[in-house]
Design a protein around this nucleic acid. Structure first.
Lengths: 249, 249
DNA sequence: ATGATTCTTTGATCTGTATCAAGGCAAAAA
DNA sequence: TTTTTGCCTTGATACAGATCAAAGAATCAT
C-alpha cells in the first residue's frame, strides 16, 4: 500500500472542501479533514491546449482527474475515419474508471483544458479504504450510464432537428450559472464538425439546423460560437423528450 | 439494518457458488459461506411470460435480480411511440442499480424469463458490508457503460449492414456454448421489429439485410428465429470494427 | 383441421440526410 | 493592410433507409 500518511503541516490552514476540485461532483462532500489532506497530497494540475489528445484509447491510465476548466470529448473512431463522440466532459466531470487499467476511447481537449489529477494507484487505495468515495464513484458511473442511454435514444431515433435541439437544451442547462439562465450567452466550445460527431450527423446538417432554429426565432447567434436561447419552451418542444424531463445527460 | 442473520440449517448441504445465480456474472465469486447463505436467504425466483413488462420506467425498484433463463430488453420510448432499446439482458446479466430507487427505462421479457431476485434493501445492506461485492457491481456498471458506448458508435455511425453484422456477431459470441462455436445454431429470441428497435432501424430494413447476408452466404436461416454463421470472417469484416476486437457489448 | 392473427418478406416509392461543390467570413500570419 | 487559413454557410444532387403496400409463412385459437 502506498497511500500517504497524514502530513504534518500545522501551519497550513485546514484544506477546505472547496479547494478539492474533485468535489466538483461532490466526490468528497463527505470527506473528513484527513481524507481531504490525503487527496490534496496526491493532487497535481495538468493543462492541455485546444486540440491536444489527453488520453489515447488503450493507453494505460496513470491518473484519474476532474475537469477544472475547459471542455474535453470522449470519442471512438472506426478504421475508415468515421467518428462518434460517446461523452462530453465539462468542468466538474470526472475522468477515470475505478479498477480499470485503460480506457476504450480517446479523450481530447476541444478548448484549453485544466485537469486536477490524482495519482491512480494512490487514489485507488484511498477509494478502497473509503466506502463513501467508492459509493460516490458508483453514482457517477450510473449517471454516465443513464446519460449514455439517453444519448442512444437520440442517436437511434431522433431527427436532425431534435438532435440539435436536445444538444442546445443540454448545453443551456449545464452551462447556466444563473438560477433561471434562459437568456445567458452560451458558449458552444466545439466546431460544427465536432458537434456533428457528437450527434451522429454531418457538419453541413448541423449548420443547416442551426440556421433553421435561428430563422424560427428559437435561438440567436452572436457569433459562430456563442448563442442565446430566445424561446426555451419552443426549444424543449423540439427536443422530442417528455415535457416532465427525467433526462440526465 | 435488516440484513438477515446467518440461518441455522445444519442439515442442508453448504450452498455452492454454482447455486447462487448472481454468480452468473461472478458477483459472488469471492463470497464466503456466510455471505452465500445470506444471499440464499433473500433469494426468490420470478417468472415472466414473453411480452410481459418486468419493470416500468420510474417504478420503484423492489428487487435486484439476475437473469437465469430467457431474454429481456431495456428500452426507452418517446411520446410519439418511437422506441430505442438501450440494452439487452441475456442469462447471467444483472438488473438493478446500487443505490438507485428506480430505473429510467422499461424492462420487458421478449421470451419467457426467469429471474433470480434479491430483496433490494437487504441486498444493499449486504453490499454495504461487503466491499468485494460493491467492487464487482462497479465492474458490472463499467462493463455496461463500455457496451453502451460501443452501441453509440453503432447507432450514430454504422450502416444498416454493419449494424446487422455487429448484432449477429454479438449474438454469436454471447450465445456460443462451445469453445469455437462458429457453427452453433443461434436463437434470435427477438422479432424483426424488436431487432430494429435495438439497432435504430425499421423492421423492413432488418429483414432486407438478413436476406442479403443470407444470399451472400454469410449466415443461413433454418427458420425465422434460428440461424448459423456460415462465414465468421466475412461476418466480422462486415461489422466495421477493428479486427483486433476490443469491443465489449 | 381451419380460420384468424401475427410476423416476415419483398416490391415500389419517397424523403431526410449525406455528399459534392462553391463561396463567405473572421481570426491569424505576413 | 493584405494574404492565408480554417471554419462556416448555402445550394445542388444523390442515395440509404424509411414509408407505404401487399402478399406469403408461421403460430394460435377455436
Amino acid at each position: 500500500m502506498n497511500q500517504p500518511k497524514k502530513l504534518n503541516t500545522p501551519s497550513v490552514a485546514p484544506i477546505k472542501c472547496s479547494q478539492c476540485p474533485i468535489r466538483h461532483r461532490a466526490v468528497c462532500a463527505r470527506c473528513d479533514d484527513d481524507e481531504l489532506e490525503i487527496l490534496e497530497s496526491m493532487k497535481s494540475y495538468k493543462t492541455y491546449a485546444a486540440g491536444d489528445v489527453i488520453l489515447w484509447r488503450g493507453e494505460p491510465l496513470e491518473f484519474v482527474a476532474s475537469v477544472v476548466t475547459g471542455v474535453a470529448t470522449l470519442s471512438k473512431t472506426m478504421e475508415d475515419g468515421r467518428t462518434q463522440m460517446v461523452g462530453l466532459l465539462l468542468p466538474s466531470d470526472f475522468i477515470g474508471r475505478p479498477g480499470r487499467e485503460q480506457i476504450e476511447f480517446d479523450v481530447t481537449a476541444t478548448v484549453d483544458v485544466t485537469l486536477c489529477c490524482f495519482d491512480r494507484p494512490r487514489f485507488e487505495s484511498l477509494v478502497c479504504e473509503t466506502p463513501h468515495i467508492a459509493q460516490r464513484l458508483m453514482e457517477l458511473a450510473l449517471d454516465e450510464l443513464d446519460a449514455a442511454r439517453d444519448w442512444m435514444l437520440l442517436l437511434g431515433r431522433k431527427t436532425a432537428r431534435e438532435k440539435i435541439a436536445t444538444f442546445i437544451e443540454m448545453l443551456a442547462r449545464r452551462s447556466s450559472h444563473g438560477q433561471d439562465g434562459s437568456k445567458d450567452v452560451i458558449d458552444l466550445h466545439m466546431t460544427r464538425d465536432q458537434i456533428a460527431n457528437y450527434l451522429g450527423l454531418t457538419l453541413e446538417t448541423v449548420s443547416r439546423q442551426f440556421s433553421a432554429l435561428k430563422k424560427d426565432g428559437v435561438i440567436d447567434f452572436s457569433d459562430r460560437k456563442h448563442f442565446t436561447v430566445e424561446d426555451i419552451a419552443a426549444l424543449q418542444d423540439e427536443t422530442g423528450d417528455d415535457a416532465d424531463g427525467g433526462v440526465v445527460y
